[in-house]
Simulated assay, not measured.
Amino acid sequence: MDQRVASQALPVKTIIKGKNKYMVEKVLGAGGFGITYRVVTYHGNIAIRFAVKEYFPSNMCERIDGRLSYSGPVKADVENGLDSFISEAERLKSQNIHHPNIVGINEVIRANNTAYYVMEYINGRNVRDYLMQERNHRPLPEDEALELIRPVMAAIALLHRHKVTHLDIKPDNIVLSPVEDSDGLRPVV
């Protein structure tokens, strides 16, 4: 996680308002184009967790008083990126793309001079952490590697058929979720 970007993250307990109110619980990741949070919303007494991706191009902006702020020279780049971020999330949501290896998008929110999309929260760890911690930096045997990459490739192929391009496929962005009643892992992009 990019600590410089993480230092610009929304504080814990910040509320992001959309159709529901989502309270930030923790930062899950931070990189060049965004910050991802785990959030919670309540339906009665039932807590439901989601992941929220915030558009935050760290090399062109900063957070001031909770809002995305940037200077005139980068205005067009930041706003074009924001429009692309929103349109891709809206397209994924509206096209109802369902696949067990693609995270579902529930809502797109425009607030604080930026945008957020609310996704299902996948409990697990990313491929990079899995390889470094579980595998102690040892490469996966070919059959295990194929078992993880084939579903990812099928998910990417489905996105491409819907004219959606994922621009950041990397081990950090593939979460491995435990499969109930088995030792298997479900990779989710």
Rank of each mutant, 00 (worst) to 15 (best):
R128D: 06
Y121N: 06
K26N: 12
N126Q: 02
R128I: 02
H137D: 14
I48K: 13
I109L: 01
V40A: 13
N101Y: 00
N123M: 03
A115D: 08
N123T: 02
M132D: 05
T41W: 06
A111C: 09
E54L: 07
E25Q: 14
I86N: 00
K21E: 14
L146R: 11
Y37D: 14
N80D: 03
I109Y: 08
N136Q: 15
Q133Y: 07
S69E: 05
Y42W: 15
Y37M: 09
G104E: 09
A115C: 02
G18S: 11
P57C: 09
V24R: 13
S94H: 04
T36D: 11
Y22D: 11
G124C: 01
S71P: 03
Y42R: 15
T41Q: 06
G34W: 07
F50D: 12
I122P: 05
K19R: 12
N112A: 05
I102K: 01
R91N: 07
P100H: 04
E107C: 01
T114E: 00
V78H: 00
V74D: 04
V27M: 11
N112L: 07
I97W: 05
D77M: 01
V40E: 13
G31P: 13
V78C: 03
S71Y: 03
N45R: 13
G124A: 03
G81F: 01
P139V: 13
L68R: 09
S71R: 07
Y37I: 08
L146E: 11
Y22C: 15
S69P: 07
S87M: 05
M119W: 00
P139H: 10
K21L: 15
E90Y: 05
M60D: 05
F56S: 06
T114R: 04
R67L: 06
R91I: 03
Q95W: 04
G66A: 06
Y70F: 14
N59L: 12
E25Y: 07
D129Y: 00
A51E: 06
R67F: 08
G29Q: 13
K19V: 10
R138T: 08
R110P: 03
R63M: 08
Q133H: 05
I64R: 15
V127Y: 13
T114V: 01
A51Y: 07
N96L: 04
Y22G: 14
E88I: 05
A145V: 04
H137N: 10
V118D: 02
M132W: 02
A76N: 09
E25A: 07
N126C: 00
G72M: 09
R49W: 15
P139G: 10
Q95V: 00
I105F: 01
N80K: 02
V103F: 01
G29K: 15
A115N: 06
Y130C: 03
N123K: 02
D143E: 11
K93P: 11
S58R: 13
S69A: 10
E144A: 07
R138V: 08
Y55P: 12
Y70S: 13
